[in-house]
Design a protein around this nucleic acid. Structure first.
Lengths: 187, 187
DNA sequence: ATGATTTTTTGACATAGGTCAAAAATTATC
DNA sequence: GATAATTTTTGACCTATGTCAAAAAATCAT
């Protein structure tokens, strides 16, 4: 729990009452390696703050899994549109390794938004960070080679990179597994 | 002003006091075609709600302009990171055609955030929409051909497409002007 | 309108990365 | 620890898109 508090406090000051509400509402959940956490046919009801492990969001394209993003320690994983708008979306979520999380139900989040304006601020500010990453990712897709994207990924996600199967990294980078394999063979 | 109110009300209910604060703080600004509105060496102090016209955010890569995004009627234009964090960033902003805007200073925005929690909510929700667009753009960069991206752009931005020079569209799509020219010649 | 800029198109050629298929290596299971 | 399943690598070949250069067309300014 401490880590989650720290995460919040990098954006807002956590009041006692808010802390205690969070405490009441967050549930511990652990997932086994390979476990499917969200199916694309379902609406995403929970957001998972990862304490240990790696979760992956992916979708199916021509029957194949395409990895959209990975989340590691101290990050929230959910199916963004599905969670925020309570509709279905294309994303599946699974566990790349055994993963322990704190889970926040969407109804609890709504309660917090309605009663703690600082939660709205937290959400706005933390979305801002993700926003920046998305813009960088767009830029990298537009202007950098497969090799550069790979090297960049390895550097940025140094902690989780060695734990993610190659094929998943390739689809994340928008290249084929074969190409990624050749890039790695190079040097 | 009415259009801006409508825009807000698609996300939140606008109270009388908030309306009047907005009224006091928004300034009309008009830009001539081709006018540079923000230089990358400056911190972005204003966000512009476009009433008429098109603004463009771009950056320089190897001395060439690369268009990052375009904003048309009823959209906010600013240099996101620069505006929200009051740092410099890579983006320039210019006017593709004569454009009239309502301008909101960052200090006024901060005031509104601090005094009207619903402004935080508005910001969170409207960022959510942009978020969705960014994710789609990433997907399109990863998995669709130059031609598909072009056709999609033409469809989504049907209103502004014919008013934007080809070279700017090409760099937005992450392709060369020559390739775009050939795609258009095809059919 | 007329010449000067700017934008768009066309041509010839190069190459990064894709596809399909099979072998090799790694990992999981009994 | 042996066999099966999965993941990664390698090979042969192909194609979409990039690069560089120049012509054509469109737009702008006097």
């Amino acid at each position: 729990m401490e880590r989650l508090y720290q995460h919040f406090e990098s954006y807002i000051r956590l009041s006692k009452p808010l802390k205690s509400e969070l405490n009441n509402r967050l549930k511990s959940k652990t997932f086994a390696k390979g476990e499917l956490i969200l199916d694309a046919s379902q609406v995403c009801k929970e957001s998972y703050f990862i304490q240990q492990g790696i979760l992956r969001a992916y979708f199916l394209k021509d029957g194949k899994e395409v990895s959209e993003f990975f989340c590691g320690t101290n990050e929230w994983m959910n199916s963004p549109k599905s969670y925020m708008q309570q509709t279905t979306d294309i994303y599946y979520i699974d566990a790349i390794e055994e993963t322990s999380t704190l889970s926040l139900n969407v109804n609890d989040l709504v309660f917090l938004f309605d009663n703690f304006p600082e939660m709205e601020r937290y959400a706005r500010l933390s979305m801002g960070s993700v926003f920046g990453h998305l813009m960088e990712r767009i830029a990298s897709m537009r202007f950098t080679s497969a090799k550069e994207r790979y090297l960049n990924f390895k550097q940025i996600y140094a902690d989780i990179y060695p734990r993610i199967p190659l094929g998943m990294v390739a689809s994340y980078l928008g290249i084929t597994q074969e190409t990624l394999s050749r890039i790695r063979a190079e040097k």
